[in-house]
Design a binder for these strands. Structure first.
Lengths: 250, 250
DNA sequence: CTAGTGTACTGGTCTGACCAGTAGGCTACG
DNA sequence: CGTAGCCTACTGGTCAGACCAGTACACTAG
């Protein structure tokens, strides 16, 4: 005891220092989306490392969704605007390796979507309300004819709600989880025998939610929203998990 | 028109194909955590690509938190058990480049934590209830003396609740966002003049939540939980955003 | 003024080399 | 015989230099 306590020295790889510096520049705003990094050959001079090191750093930055490079581009790598792609990727991985069940994913959506609706009921502008209405109108127009347009309109509705709720994190997470869920059961949804009936019921539910939002009744809107999601997805969830979903319906 | 419709060929980088194959092997369970990949030199033979390509692929896999490599290791890269590190990283980046406000983060926690508590009230076992109690006891023991232990016990409490709720995604997300929030305002929390009073109030709130969970009153527990979080963090959130947080307190 | 060609870059990939570090067998000593 | 210490054969990290295919842009010939 006594004497100085030495900490283990953490060896930092060269490429990591490159990543750190570029990341810092991007996140601090010194580099804005659309701007270009110097070329790899230029970077290797600036950082005085080899090109392999520069490239490994760029691969990491690309995996994090911060930059993109394209062969033949006379400029260097492009700084990307924010995109939830990296979040999407890591959540998809999460869903696979942590073995998230469909029930957990749907439950997560029920929670976040319910919250978004609750907030939207209080904060929405008339314009956002109109957007939601337009989305549902598009759903109705596409119901039974254009499967793809129906889905897109549904997404537009939920996105409008989430934006109205004013919480970007909720908005992004709902979107990410929604796309994971949809991908997971896309084939089963398309093959549902009572597909048209499901669509009609979904539209009705959406309209009820809009009405509650318009009326400013957040708790009601949230309940309706969770109920709508439950009705739409419960059929694809095992019975054991379904009861956990119902816990959110009270 | 007429004639075959050609799709644009998507050029796939060599390292991407390597990433895909290894990723698939890991996510499908063909490679389990703790197992080793072949060495880089062996991989370059198996994939018949150069070592640079192999290394770029490994960098990507490492950035996604799937593998880790260590210089001098006589084996190849190690397949890692699942960890939310990648999710954490991408959400932290998200918080910076998408300019998430503290209010949005706290609001997100209020929503998810409320949901976790609601579910826990219904699904908790006696054992989990005891864990929560132990965590609060630890908080009380550390209050005013050991700042760090207090924080750790707080985390343990919320983790026990989230686990009892039975939704791993909620559990992981709350944990990730919590650590981001804490990091964001760690200095301000530590410097709060009424620090001890805050701790005491926090403990009281936690006990009320436990009581509601024990009683099986999910909605009450959720309300109390959101209130507790609001009380603890509202002081660090700007007034404009605070009203959005209060929308969740009704 | 335009169509076409050149050219000088870019990123993607490969080869081959060296270094520092580790594990584990081997050897020499007690 | 047991063990301490060396030695070797690997590992990943980094570097240097090369080639290729692709792109943008200036230049040139019509």
């Amino acid at each position: 005891m006594g004497g100085p306590r030495f900490e283990p020295v953490r060896t930092v790889r060269a490429y990591e220092r490159v990543v750190e510096q570029v990341e810092e520049a991007i996140e601090s705003g010194a580099l804005s989306p659309g701007e270009r990094l110097p070329s790899e050959r230029e970077l290797m001079v600036q950082f005085s490392v080899s090109r392999s090191t520069v490239r490994e750093a760029l691969r990491v930055l690309q995996a994090r969704g911060l930059v993109r490079s394209r062969p033949g581009d006379p400029n260097g790598a492009e700084v990307l605007p924010f995109s939830p792609a990296a979040l999407h990727k890591s959540m998809t991985t999460l869903a696979r390796v942590a073995e998230l069940s469909l029930g957990e994913l749907v439950q997560f959506r029920m929670v976040l979507d319910g919250a978004a609706v609750l907030l939207a009921a209080r904060l929405r502008t008339e314009e956002q309300l109109a957007e939601m209405g337009a989305a549902v109108a598009a759903m109705r127009a596409a119901a039974g004819t254009d499967e793809e347009a129906f889905g897109a309109a549904d997404v537009a509705f939920h996105d409008a709600v989430a934006r109205a709720g004013g919480n970007k994190l909720i908005q992004i997470c709902t979107d990410v989880v929604r796309s994971i869920v949809v991908k997971l059961i896309a084939d089963r949804i398309a093959a549902a025998p009572d597909r048209e009936e499901l669509m009609r019921r979904s539209i009705r539910h959406h309209e009820e939610v809009i009405a509650a939002i318009r009326a400013g009744d957040g708790p009601l809107a949230a309940r309706l929203s969770r109920k709508a999601m439950y009705d739409y997805y419960a059929g694809y969830v095992g019975e054991g998990e379904r009861s956990a979903l119902r816990a959110l319906l009270e």
